[in-house]
């Protein structure tokens, strides 16, 4: 469960990035966080990743107050969530298999487990046949699927996808969101997807949280077009 209580983030530049945010996302939910450029979406992601702590207020993920995590506890917390970024953030020197295996090594998993787990998650994103390819040999959509496989590797309860469709062909964007929804439905993984693509959100529907100028202006469930179809 993710919970933000009376959260304010004030940057030293004088910008109030988030103001009095109160938010609760339950386990197993799929939530879209939408908003324009500079609305505060990135700040929210940084809070959830524990890259920053709020100026005032508290952020809880799975019952942990993130501001109280110190040193290696932060690293351990990040291993318990999966992150997907707009720019994929794959290590170019490593092949697809190694990019996924990498996070399992960080989590100090055994070689045996890594050999079983990596093909399994690559299969989930339908990229088992590209295991030996380097990221630059893949399309944008494929690279993002590798990033999703990497996020799934440690079997996290929560995946935060920060503009995951921002750098890929619009046609493939739907496939990526569909993949995330499949993961949500099949494994019960909580998914928070940050995006500015309203068409995509309208298409899939679900719980939508709109942020504008650092405040939540809308938080409700809407029906998606794919359900109407």
């Amino acid at each position: 469960m993710v919970e933000l209580k009376n959260v304010n983030v004030h940057y030293s530049s004088g910008v109030d990035a988030l103001q009095d945010i109160n938010l609760r996302i339950n386990d197993g939910e799929f939530v879209f966080i939408v908003g324009g450029s500079g609305a505060g979406k990135s700040t929210l992601v940084k809070l959830l990743m524990r890259e920053i702590t709020p100026t005032t207020g508290r952020v809880f993920v799975n019952g942990k107050n993130l501001a109280k995590l110190k040193g290696n506890q932060v690293a351990k917390f990040r291993r318990s969530i999966g992150m997907v970024f707009q720019d994929f953030r794959l290590i170019q020197e490593l092949n697809v298999y190694e990019n996924v295996a990498f996070v399992l090594r960080i989590a100090d998993q055994s070689s045996r487990f890594i050999k079983q787990r990596v093909p399994y998650v690559l299969n989930l994103v339908d990229l088992a046949h590209k295991a030996r390819s380097k990221p630059r040999e893949l399309s944008g959509g494929e690279q993002q699927r590798v990033a999703i496989a990497r996020a799934l590797a440690n079997d996290p309860g929560l995946i935060i996808a920060d503009e995951p469709t921002g750098n890929i062909d619009p046609r493939l964007s739907y496939e990526i969101v569909e993949l995330l929804r499949d993961i949500n439905r099949s494994a019960g993984t909580t998914i928070i997807m940050v995006t500015h693509e309203h068409d995509l959100v309208k298409h899939f529907g679900g719980r939508i949280i709109n942020i504008d100028s650092g405040s939540i202006t809308f938080d409700d469930i809407i029906g998606g077009q794919d359900e109407d179809e």
């Binding site: 990743m49 040193g71 290696n72 690293a75 351990k76 917390f77 990040r78 291993r79 318990s80 992150m83 970024f85 953030r89 794959l90 290590i91 170019q92 020197e93 990498f102 996070v103 960080i106 989590a107 990497r150 440690n154």
Partner: peptide, 16 residues
């Protein structure tokens, strides 16, 4: 530096 950044985001400890 990119790899280090990625490592931080996916939960690598300082020692790793």
């Amino acid at each position: 530096r990119n790899e280090i950044n990625i490592m931080r985001y996916v939960g690598a400890t300082s020692g790793f």
